[in-house]
Design a protein around this nucleic acid. Structure first.
Length: 418
DNA sequence: TCTGGGGTCCTAGGACCC
DNA sequence: TCTGGGGTCCTAGGACCC
């Protein structure tokens, strides 16, 4: 028996937590660069503001309805997410943190899942101030579906237990509402007459596997109550690291893009070291806006394989500049660049080459990076950084409406007190 | 004018091996 | 006209998730 606990309108609820006057008011949170709507309070949903909508398309509604608009504040959301998880862990150690606002709990052994779910919901609200919904089912997929129903119907009080015979419930659910079935699969299923979750549950699983994939076959079995997806309590090692960001304005100048790419590479290297990992391969990507007219539309990527796995920012920046030279075309209005690190491995178990790369002293490199990380941890990000990452940084992303980091920065807390 | 940033897994196909 | 059979590994691309 699985429960899925999910914070309602997570980012919007986080903003509201420290601004009680936002209670009952429409709130939206924006993506990076203040580009799209990525979270909405119930009031904002009721105004018909769609998820993922570009802000400029709903500017009028936002102004007319006096919607409160926030840039995203991931330091705040990440911290509050951790608080919710720590409350959930008091109910069971068998817990999987699935995303920033969702956890699966194993409710096996509890005799009254409904009472238990209400207890979880009430406790999280009391202790963190955040409203959650709880869905319970025999498999993760059914728990997900139950959670969705709990959210949709206010009469349920935030909790829904999937009945032993779920056919009636599943008959009212479209396939694209099922976890793992996105827009494209839903369209393909629709073409062969499978439109509801119940249709999918009753489909021939071998046929589904042949026609689609093993992933969809598993969804069929999960809908039937046969668990194919286990609770993953230990966090598996990360396989790739990505740092990519749109610019605040269109950028053409090579030096600016080089500074951006070097900045992203530095950030990626920091993430890598924090997890004790090293990378064997880097890919740099660069593009103009996909919405721009054809002659300006351009996207390209170049990769670099390191002679030996590394987590040294110096090596990253060097490789990044090397790749950028290959894909940069002068004169174009660039919109976004990114750094991907691939083929990660545990730094303690790096496969050394027979002939070490010239000019690289692993001991010195490690000592330098350690010093850099410590200075930046104590004195704030970017206290020491590489000159090539730029001084003016006029390309850096827009975040004009960010709330204070109430829970992670003393300075910001004082600001609230006046 | 303005359109996010991360991740995962699976499959197909190519290169290569004996 | 005929052109083996069995593998592995890697990569690119497509689908999904939040």
């Amino acid at each position: 028996m699985f429960a899925l606990v999910d914070v309602n309108n997570f980012y919007a609820s986080c903003e509201r937590l420290f601004e009680p006057r936002l209670e009952g008011v429409a709130v939206v949170v924006l993506s990076n660069n203040d580009g799209c709507i990525i979270a909405r309070s119930q009031e904002a949903k009721d105004l018909g503001i769609p998820m993922g909508e570009p802000v400029h398309k709903v500017k009028d509604v936002l102004r007319r309805e006096r919607v409160r608009v926030y840039s995203s504040n991931y330091a705040l959301y990440g911290d509050l997410s951790g608080r919710v998880v720590s409350v959930l862990k008091r109910f069971t150690p068998y817990l999987e943190v699935y995303s920033i606002d969702e956890s699966f709990l194993d409710l096996g052994g509890f005799t009254d899942p409904a009472a238990h779910s209400h207890d979880i919901k009430d406790t999280v609200l009391r202790w963190t101030g955040l409203p959650v919904s709880v869905g319970v089912g025999a498999t993760k997929t059914l728990a997900k579906a139950a959670n969705r129903i709990a959210k949709k119907d206010p009469a349920l009080g935030g909790v829904f237990i999937m009945p032993d015979d779920p056919d009636e419930v599943l008959g009212n659910l479209n396939t694209d509402a099922i976890w793992g079935i996105g827009r494209r699969l839903a369209a393909r299923l629709d073409r062969i007459g499978i439109t509801t979750a119940l249709d999918l549950k009753n489909a021939d699983s071998k046929f589904i596997r042949a026609r689609f994939s093993v992933v969809v076959e598993r969804t069929v079995l999960e809908l039937r109550g046969t668990p194919c997806l286990a609770l993953e309590m230990t966090v598996p090692a990360q396989k790739g690291i990505m740092v990519s960001r749109g610019f605040s304005r269109r950028v053409t100048d090579y030096r600016d893009i080089e500074a951006a790419v070097a900045t992203y590479a530095s950030r990626a290297a920091e993430k890598l070291r924090r997890q004790g990992l090293s990378t064997n391969k880097m890919t740099i990507s660069l593009r103009t806006s996909p919405f721009s007219p054809a002659p300006e539309r351009y996207a390209n990527a170049a990769g670099f394989v390191f002679p030996e796995a590394t987590s040294d920012t110096t090596h990253m920046i060097k490789a990044a500049r090397h790749c950028l030279k290959k894909i940069y075309k002068p004169g174009l209005p660039y919109q976004k660049a990114g750094v991907f690190l691939d083929a990660l491995e545990d730094t303690r178990r790096i496969q050394r080459g027979l002939f070490p790369p010239p000019g690289v002293d692993p001991d010195k490199s490690r000592a330098l990076m350690k010093a850099v990380d410590r200075i930046n941890a104590d004195w704030g990000r970017n206290t020491v950084r590489f000159a090539v990452t730029g001084m003016q940084r006029s390309w850096a992303m827009k975040q004009n409406r960010k709330s204070p980091c109430y829970t992670t920065r003393w300075q910001d807390l004082k600001q609230v007190g006046g």
